[in-house]
Amino acid sequence: MWNFPLVPPTAAEEALHISWLYWVITGMAIFFVVAVCAAALVLVVRYRASNENVNRDNPPESDMRLEMTWTLMPLVLALVIFFWAAKLYADIYTPRDDALEIIAIGKQWMWHVQHSNGVRENNELHIPVGRPIKVTVISQDVIHAFSLPAFRVKRDAVPGRYNSMVFTPTKTGKFHLLCTEYCGTKHSEMIGSVYVMEPDDYQKWLESGGKGTDSSSAPMSLEDQGKQIFTQLGCNTCHGAAGAAVRCPPLEGIYEKPIELANGQKVIADAEYMRESILNPAAKIVKGYDNLMPAYQGVASEDQIIKIIAYIKSLKDAKPAEASK
């Protein structure tokens, strides 16, 4: 009964930073609350109407120096906290390349997690300790939020767009995975667990195809599955065939590289761009090409899109096909 926690586990580098920030603000908060309450108490007792033995002469009407003090003091403190917190936020929610990529799809009412080697799991997330993890979230229906209190990170899973966060687990163990954006009837059952494992264990777990998850056999890697879907949906008839580059831009090596569009605009060919270009290819046509590709809106699921993008990403380091020359 009396053995219950009052703080969440601190299981990531980011969690440590945020905890520091949290407790500093909390310290300030407690200081102000105690100061205000104590001052009120002392003043109420001392200047109670029945106490005639107290000097009430010349009560001040206002005092500019005092006002400036308690205007500027909170302002300066607030600014310090602001910069600290904003910097920390930028570090965690800016995508980076060196992290292990994991994709989570939210749907009413479960989390569907996809590892880069193709292992899938539902309402569970297995990750190795000591390595930056980038979780990208998206939703299939309503807005959910992917919350990992032990790591102090959270991101809304918004339908139609990717959001991501980066954290580096420092402790092994089992932690909560929660949905924090209200999403309907079984909102409170949209929960799961995060298992942080030693890198070796994680490797074994991956190779076993995620024991204890819904996939029984050793899975194909995400890129391989992507390649399969690439064929299934007929993408390869244009993008894969020899001389394809005449009709469509080469996919090799374009991932996260800047490209120029037909209208002269320059964009980075990142996951968000790829997703849009699969669902609605005409939106951003690469310079020098015609709008020939059919739209896959309603054809490709979020799950399939993720795999196709993984496949295209695997072509990242390949040299652009020489066919165009």
Binding site: A90, T94, P95, R96, Y162, S164, V267, I268, D270, E272
Partner: peptide, 10 residues
């Protein structure tokens, strides 16, 4: 909005 995701570093 989108620029941030694509161009880290403020």
């Amino acid at each position: 909005r989108d620029h941030w995701m694509k161009y880290p570093g403020w």
